[in-house]
Lab assay of single mutants.
Amino acid sequence: TETYKYDDKREAEKAAEEFRRRGITVTVEERNGTWVLESK
């Protein structure tokens, strides 16, 4: 599991889209005002 942090929800979702395009499952969730993207 890799974790990436973003200040902006849009950025996180854009990154998530890129991962999914490569066939990687990711989750995006907000933690304490930071958007956390996790690849499984």
Rank of each mutant, 00 (worst) to 15 (best):
T1V: 13
T1Y: 14
T1I: 13
T1P: 11
T1K: 11
T1N: 11
T1G: 13
T1A: 11
T1R: 09
T1L: 13
T1E: 09
T1S: 12
E2H: 15
E2I: 15
E2S: 12
E2K: 12
E2R: 10
E2M: 14
E2N: 13
E2C: 13
E2W: 15
E2Q: 14
E2T: 14
T3M: 12
T3C: 08
T3A: 09
T3L: 13
T3Q: 11
T3Y: 13
T3I: 14
T3V: 13
T3S: 11
Y4D: 04
Y4V: 09
Y4K: 09
Y4R: 09
Y4T: 08
Y4S: 05
Y4C: 06
Y4Q: 07
Y4F: 11
Y4I: 10
Y4H: 10
Y4N: 06
Y4M: 10
K5N: 09
K5M: 13
K5H: 14
K5Q: 13
K5D: 05
K5V: 15
K5P: 04
Y6T: 02
Y6D: 00
Y6E: 01
Y6H: 02
Y6M: 02
Y6G: 01
Y6N: 00
Y6Q: 01
D7H: 13
D7F: 14
D7P: 10
D7C: 09
D7V: 12
D7S: 14
D7Y: 14
D7W: 12
D7K: 14
D7M: 13
D8T: 15
D8Y: 05
D8I: 05
D8L: 06
D8P: 01
D8W: 03
D8F: 05
D8M: 04
D8N: 14
D8H: 07
D8C: 04
K9G: 04
K9W: 10
K9F: 10
K9Y: 11
K9A: 07
K9V: 09
K9D: 02
K9E: 08
K9M: 07
K9H: 08
R10A: 14
R10F: 12
R10D: 14
R10H: 12
R10N: 11
R10Q: 13
R10P: 04
E11I: 07
E11K: 09
E11S: 11
E11Y: 04
E11F: 04
E11P: 02
E11A: 12
E11Q: 10
E11T: 10
E11M: 09
A12P: 00
A12G: 01
A12F: 01
A12Y: 02
A12M: 04
A12C: 07
A12E: 00
A12N: 00
A12L: 02
A12D: 00
A12K: 00
A12R: 00
E13W: 08
E13A: 05
E13L: 12
E13Q: 08
E13Y: 11
E13R: 03
E13K: 04
K14S: 09
K14I: 11
K14P: 00
K14G: 04
K14M: 10
K14T: 08
A15R: 05
A15K: 09
A15M: 10
A15E: 03
A15N: 03
A15H: 06
A15T: 04
A16L: 05
A16N: 01
A16I: 05
A16Y: 04
A16E: 03
A16H: 02
A16T: 02
A16Q: 06
A16P: 00
A16K: 04
A16M: 07
E17K: 06
E17P: 00
E17S: 05
E17A: 09
E17M: 07
E17L: 08
E18P: 01
E18T: 05
E18M: 08
E18W: 12
E18L: 07
E18F: 07
F19K: 03
F19V: 03
F19G: 01
F19R: 03
F19D: 01
F19S: 02
F19L: 14
F19W: 09
F19H: 04
F19Q: 04
R20C: 08
R20G: 06
R20S: 07
R20V: 06
R20F: 09
R20D: 04
R20H: 07
R20T: 06
R20I: 07
R20K: 08
R20W: 08
R20Q: 07
R20E: 07
R20M: 08
R21K: 13
R21Y: 06
R21S: 08
R21D: 08
R21Q: 10
R21G: 06
R21H: 07
R21M: 09
R21I: 09
R21F: 06
R22F: 07
R22W: 08
R22L: 12
R22D: 05
R22Q: 12
R22I: 08
R22A: 11
R22G: 06
R22V: 09
G23P: 01
G23H: 03
G23I: 00
G23Y: 02
G23N: 03
G23D: 03
G23A: 02
G23L: 01
G23T: 00
G23E: 02
G23K: 02
I24S: 04
I24G: 05
I24L: 12
I24N: 06
I24H: 10
I24T: 04
I24E: 06
T25I: 14
T25H: 13
T25N: 13
T25V: 12
T25S: 13
T25C: 10
T25L: 14
V26M: 09
V26C: 05
V26D: 00
V26W: 02
V26K: 02
V26N: 00
V26Y: 07
V26A: 04
T27L: 08
T27Y: 10
T27S: 09
T27E: 06
T27W: 11
T27C: 04
T27P: 00
T27H: 09
T27D: 04
V28L: 13
V28F: 04
V28G: 00
V28R: 00
V28K: 01
V28C: 06
V28A: 02
E29D: 05
E29Y: 15
E29T: 15
E29I: 15
E29P: 00
E29L: 13
E29W: 11
E29G: 05
E29K: 10
E29H: 12
E29V: 15
E30P: 04
E30W: 15
E30A: 06
E30C: 09
E30Q: 10
E30D: 07
E30Y: 15
E30L: 14
E30F: 15
E30K: 08
R31C: 08
R31L: 09
R31Y: 10
R31N: 07
R31F: 09
R31M: 08
R31E: 06
R31G: 03
R31I: 13
N32L: 05
N32T: 03
N32I: 02
N32W: 05
N32R: 03
N32G: 08
N32M: 05
N32D: 13
G33I: 00
G33P: 01
G33D: 03
G33T: 02
G33A: 03
G33W: 01
G33S: 03
T34C: 08
T34H: 14
T34E: 12
T34V: 15
T34K: 15
T34Q: 15
T34F: 15
T34M: 15
T34G: 12
T34R: 11
T34Y: 15
W35E: 01
W35D: 01
W35H: 01
W35R: 00
W35Q: 00
W35M: 01
W35I: 02
W35F: 07
W35V: 01
V36F: 12
V36Y: 14
V36Q: 04
V36A: 03
V36R: 03
V36S: 03
V36G: 02
V36M: 05
L37V: 14
L37T: 03
L37A: 02
L37F: 03
L37I: 13
L37N: 01
L37P: 00
L37H: 01
L37Y: 01
L37E: 00
L37D: 00
L37S: 01
L37R: 00
E38H: 12
E38W: 10
E38F: 14
E38T: 15
E38R: 11
E38M: 14
E38A: 11
E38C: 13
E38L: 15
E38N: 10
E38D: 06
E38Y: 13
E38P: 01
S39I: 15
S39W: 15
S39K: 14
S39A: 15
S39N: 10
S39R: 13
S39V: 15
S39C: 14
K40S: 13
K40D: 10
K40Q: 13
K40I: 14
K40L: 14
K40C: 07
K40F: 14
K40G: 11
K40P: 11
K40M: 12
